[in-house]
Each structure stands twice: as C-alpha cells, then as structure tokens.
C-alpha cells in the first residue's frame, strides 16, 4: 500500500508541509517493501484547482492513504471518489506520523477546509 505525505523539501529528515495541495514535494511510502521516495509537486504554483490536480496525481500513483495536516474541500471530494483515506497528522515529523498511522492513532480528516474559509 502506498501512503503519500506532503513535505517541505526532499532533504532528510522530511518535514511535513502545512498545505497538502501547495506542498513542494510529496513523500511516497510503500509499506509492502518499506521504501520511501520523493516526488515533485508540479501543481505547487497552480493559481486554482491545485487540490484537484494533486488528488488526481496521487490517485494515478495508486496511493491509498494520505497523511496531511489538513485537506481542502476540492481535494477531499476527489479522494472520496477515489476511495483514498486521508488522516490528520500531528506535528511535523514524518516518521513519527507514519508510526502513529501504523498504530491506528491518527484521526480521519472529516472536516475539510472550504475554498476560502476554515470551517471549525
């Protein structure tokens, strides 16, 4: 199973990025062989609809789980269609969050950010 996590840069140690769609890079963890690779987010600079494009990209990469601090409404809609689960990270440490995910200690993201306003 592939797990995608937005990261600030492709330098180790990987730091989780605050935004999902506007993350410069993604870390892709394949837990079937315990490998991590990084990919560039080509949609980082998109003026609009970056969430849709990123969700499409992760879907095409056969990602099944996304770990992120938050997720916009447009991306969430595509993830729902693609049956990709999104979990909310705690803090910025990638390894720690991956461990928490394996321990089933992360919460599913149910409340999303709408396009312009943060819902509480």
């Amino acid at each position: 199973m592939k797990i995608a996590i937005p990261i600030v840069s492709d330098n180790k140690p990987y730091v989780i990025n605050d935004s999902l769609a506007r993350a410069p890079y993604f870390a892709l963890i394949d837990n079937s062989n315990n490998t991590v690779k990084t990919i560039v987010n080509d949609y980082y600079f998109q003026p609009g609809g970056a969430g849709v494009k990123v969700a499409q990209m992760l879907c095409d990469l056969n990602v099944k789980v996304v770990l992120a601090p938050r997720c916009g409404e447009n991306a969430q809609n595509i993830f729902n269609q693609a049956q990709i689960d999104v979990y909310q990270t705690i803090g910025y440490d990638l390894q720690n969050n991956y461990d928490l995910f394996l321990q089933k200690a992360l919460q599913s993201i149910l409340v999303t950010l709408s396009n312009h306003h943060q819902e509480v």
């Binding site: 949609y43 409404e73 809609n77 693609a82 396009n115």
Partner: peptide, 17 residues
C-alpha cells in the same frame, strides 16, 4: 480551471471550479 478529474474510469467535475 482544474475542475475535472478522471477517477475510476469516470470524469468527475468539481462544480465550484
């Protein structure tokens, strides 16, 4: 406007975009 995605062999539209 990046309003379209192709998921599970169907085009999905994000109406707001």
């Amino acid at each position: 406007y990046n309003a379209l995605a192709f998921i599970h062999n169907q085009v999905h539209i994000e109406g707001s975009l």
